[in-house]
């Protein structure tokens, strides 16, 4: 099953099995905005539960928070991460803080689903992922599914969580095709990073789209005789470094690829946590962060093409790191 279809399967399971689940956001009735991930859901479950909205990100996100405070499990959908920034107050000041501000008695079971949709010469305001922004905020859980299975399962887990969850999916993954088991209720609090591929020479850490890059790179590197371990982060807030640390204690080498700016990014957090956990001599070679240069996304095709890391970039960096013993 493809990643995009797996998201739809998750939505279908949630809407069918739980009357409290509703979906609200811009473009939900239009594949132009959300791909096939919500195809015809409003026809099956009704436009009062799958709600396409006015162009009001802030009010619609606030409405999701309000419905969540009154017994529902809304999934607020933003067709671009960039657009969700208009709703920052409701996500960061409100949803993330209500439980704490009211002494642990006001959980907000809302999902903020944001879609990364880069490439296609869309430029600076249609391309961002901003993972580490949301991971910085206590009170938000942040999930970044890479595989089709997780696209489905983490959507279900996010929606069943009593906490506000940022769920970020990536349209560059929508055609990733893998076997997917049927949806079931999952406790998000029990979910964290997973080893997707076992290896002994180097630990490659990714999230969302970059995990796919790393898996492709690991396959190529295997043909060159290198054994790469790939860790998919899956959940970046609350952040659990133990799986990565355990891997690095074996490989002594660490590369983190994130589809985002590296400054103050997820990679910085991963590397710091590993060193904090394993000590200053945990690595045999300097760690490497692969991500975007510190510039907004360009539009012009050749510039855009250079802007995003490729499988070959990962392979090159790994080979350089392997020169050091």
């Amino acid at each position: 099953m493809e990643y995009g279809e797996a998201i739809r399967t998750g939505f279908h399971y949630l809407l069918e099995s739980d009357r409290s689940v509703i979906v609200i956001g811009q473009g939900l009735w239009s594949p132009w905005y959300v791909g096939d991930t919500m195809r015809d859901l409003e026809k099956e479950f009704g436009t009062d539960r799958v709600i396409d909205t006015p162009v009001s990100e802030l009010a619609c996100t606030g409405a999701g928070v309000g419905a969540a405070l009154c017994g529902y499990r809304p999934i607020v959908t933003h067709p671009r991460v960039d657009f969700a920034l208009l709703a920052t107050d409701q996500m960061v000041n409100q949803a993330a803080k209500w439980n704490s501000m009211f002494g642990g008695t006001s959980p907000v079971p809302v999902v903020f689903r944001m879609i990364v949709n880069r490439g296609g010469e869309q430029g600076a305001q249609h391309s961002q992922s901003l993972y580490s922004w949301f991971a910085h905020i206590p009170g938000l859980r942040v999930v970044v599914p890479a595989t089709p299975q997780d696209a489905q399962d983490l959507l279900v887990a996010a929606t069943l969580s009593d906490d506000p969850v940022v769920y970020i999916d990536d349209r560059w993954l929508y055609d990733w095709d893998q076997a997917v088991t049927a949806p079931r209720a999952i406790n998000l609090a029990s979910q964290g990073p997973l080893v997707l591929r076992h290896g002994t020479d180097i630990t490659l850490v990714g999230l969302s789209w970059t995990t796919r890059l790393l898996m492709d790179a690991a396959n190529l590197l295997q043909t060159e005789g290198l054994s790469c371990e790939v860790v998919d982060l899956r959940v970046i807030n609350p952040f659990d470094a133990s799986v990565v640390a355990q891997s690095v204690s074996k490989t002594k080498r660490l590369l983190v690829a994130e589809g985002d700016w590296v400054t103050c990014g997820v990679g910085a957090e991963v590397i710091t946590r590993v060193i904090e956990e394993l000590g200053p001599h945990a690595l045999s070679v300097a760690p490497k962060r692969v991500g975007l240069v510190d510039a907004p996304a360009p539009t012009s095709k050749p510039l855009e093409n250079n802007y995003y890391p490729k499988v070959q970039d990962i392979v090159k960096h790994v080979n350089e790191m392997m020169k050091w013993q």
Binding site: I24, A59, G62, G66, A67, G71, D89, Q94
Partner: peptide, 16 residues
């Protein structure tokens, strides 16, 4: 901040 939250509460009450 609570203006749209109240609107969401109204949505919940309507669905109820």
């Amino acid at each position: 901040a609570t203006i749209p939250i109240a609107v969401g509460a109204a949505l919940a009450l309507k669905l109820d």
